[in-house]
Design a protein around this nucleic acid. Structure first.
Lengths: 337, 337
DNA sequence: TTTTTTCATGACACCGGTGTCACAATAAGG
DNA sequence: CCTTATTGTGACACCGGTGTCATGAAAAAA
């Protein structure tokens, strides 16, 4: 099995390389007859263009990078799934780049990544989508990028997000409608803009329903299960104990559930628990967690599709989409007794 | 910021392209003085070779692909982490390729993947590592590959695995030592060789301790949480009810725990539950799951490192490693009352 | 010292595509 | 019927590296 190059196709079809290239790229100014002929030879010789050669000639890599730093494996795989779907549709590849760095070290790391991989573009997932320094750096280097799930919308970049504030509002309202007035809240990691957004939604729901905000009911978490355990301890030690807990993500909510169960509290009879994200764990534990589902795959897919579109043909107007988050009620929340 | 190519470096240093190339690749036959000079220019001009051009010249892509089909997100990310670690050390990139196909469709899909991405090699994770047809196809195409966590060892390929049979033996023995004699077992997906291995370990432990194997205690699962729920239902409906359940992975074990809890059974007082894999969920639920931890990252990292080594310089002797699995005891197992 | 071998280096083609431009053939305009 | 556009096509350089081979200089052997 010898390899089939554009040269073999050209000579076999009796045309020049360039003409074959034109057919490959759907360029105009090729007669229908010639196009047919060349396409037939593609089939016959089972020809696939070499993306590396193409990349060299066009100074492209056909690879986009996805940067993340997230304790939730399910979130990461959902992001990857969405990004891959978009890549496959456009004959792009996806390079994954987990990264725990911050500040200058982050910038250096990304610079090196770009240097060594010649990525055509970057997808920034939380928390990177909200790092001004990083975004400015990419802008200065003229590297196309798209932001997923960012709260910052007043800029000129591609951004697809979901409404965290509204989601948090709705789930808090759900608890309030069940009669809860003492609702503890566990914050997420301060680097993530979602942390602020979810907190805002929580407070807005309280305000809307005339419930006074109580700072003592708020705990600082960081989205990790472990931080949820610490926060849960503080909350369950409060007296009087709140009748509900809204954790900024499902892992922390699961931690609250675990600790409550260990202390022989019945959920939801003694205490209601709500999470955020609809991670797999939300339905893998008993009772299942009431939570907010976001279309993570869809967000990422749209962002990457738009990013690739932009790479191929730079757009002037930035693509901005906000998708809906949806309340999922399970067994972990119930009316206050 | 103009781009720095090998040509600019060459003219700046007053040597030829080829000499620069020699320095880049640590080739011999370059005088120390010249090497120093060129290296200094690398620094000064902040030069990074273009991997695409390099790939074209050497007919390599510096990308390896990782194929998987696994319901466990945590397993996938662990595999990725290990693979990425190895890639980064060798200036390789990782292309992820989730794939749910089987049979001819699988082969076609992989063929297309190879055609369009020009991967230098492939990492096969379960269940693909055990698909003879796929392996034969790769062999016939002379695509280097490495197998991770496969039970098949009597071939001439790169393979890094852990001892599933022994792990299953140990955890079953752990239950037996706690006084359990009626231990239900939930099998995994039949495509995975681990399914067979873990079942063997379970049976060997029974035999070793003189416990008669009872087919009615064995349920067919497929590693998914959902299948665990179905299996759990059958097992908990048995009369007499087994005093312990060993599920082939943690998701199914979590399902058993959920169902048992829903039925007001106390774990481990009324029934002990053991899993396999040490997935995050094993410690995120209450009670935490007794399970077997495998060095997934390490396995994958070794496999990929070896794969890249092989790509650079084909080895004659296949690399075979079996790593140890480790019993982790948590609260879900206890002595039978 | 002369011959042979080894070493350091560069010229040049090549990897497999794409961009630019020239050019002939055809179509449209006056 | 003779310009002037328009269209289809190919020659050729180029993208940024690496492989092959020739060559002159230095080192080793005779």
């Amino acid at each position: 099995m010898k390899k089939v190059t554009i040269n073999s196709v050209a000579s076999y079809a009796g045309v020049s390389k360039k003409t074959v290239s034109r057919v490959l790229n759907n360029e105009p100014n090729v007669s229908a007859a010639t196009r047919e002929k060349v396409l037939a030879v593609f089939k016959e010789l089972d020809y696939t263009p070499n993306p590396i050669a193409r990349g060299l000639a066009q100074n492209r890599s056909f690879i986009i990078g996805c940067i993340y730093d997230n304790p939730s494996k399910s979130y990461i795989t959902r992001v990857q799934t969405g990004a891959l779907a978009a890549c496959q549709e456009n004959n792009y590849n996806l390079l994954i780049h987990p990264c725990e760095l911050r500040g200058d070290a982050l910038i250096n790391n990304i610079e090196q990544l770009l240097q060594s991989s010649r990525l055509d573009g970057l997808v920034l997932t939380p928390p990177f989508c909200d790092f001004g320094e990083l975004v400015d750096f990419l802008k200065s280097k003229k590297i196309p990028y798209a932001r997923v799930a960012s709260a910052i919308l007043d800029d000129d970049s591609i951004s697809v997000t979901s409404n965290d504030e509204q989601g948090a509002f709705e789930i808090t309202e759900h608890l309030i409608n069940l009669g809860h007035t003492s609702i503890a809240f566990i914050k997420g990691h301060p680097d993530h803009s979602a942390t602020e957004q979810r907190f805002k939604g929580y407070r807005r729901a309280l305000t809307t329903h005339g419930i006074e905000f109580n700072e003592r009911l708020v705990e600082e978490g960081n989205f990790s299960y472990h931080s949820g355990v610490d926060s849960a301890r503080s909350i369950l030690d409060l007296s009087p104990r709140p009748t509900a807990v809204f954790a900024s993500n499902d892992y922390m909510a699961a931690a609250v559930l675990k600790l409550a169960t260990q202390r022989n509290l019945r959920v939801p009879d003694d205490i209601s628990i709500a999470g955020f994200d609809n991670a797999p764990i939300a339905r893998h534990i008993w009772p299942g967690l009431t939570t907010i589902a976001q279309p993570v795959e869809e967000m990422t897919k749209q962002a990457v599709t738009q990013l690739i579109t932009h790479i191929i043909e730079p757009q002037e107007s930035p693509y901005k989409v906000i998708l809906e988050a949806k309340l999922i009620t399970r067994e972990s929340t119930a009316a206050v007794k």
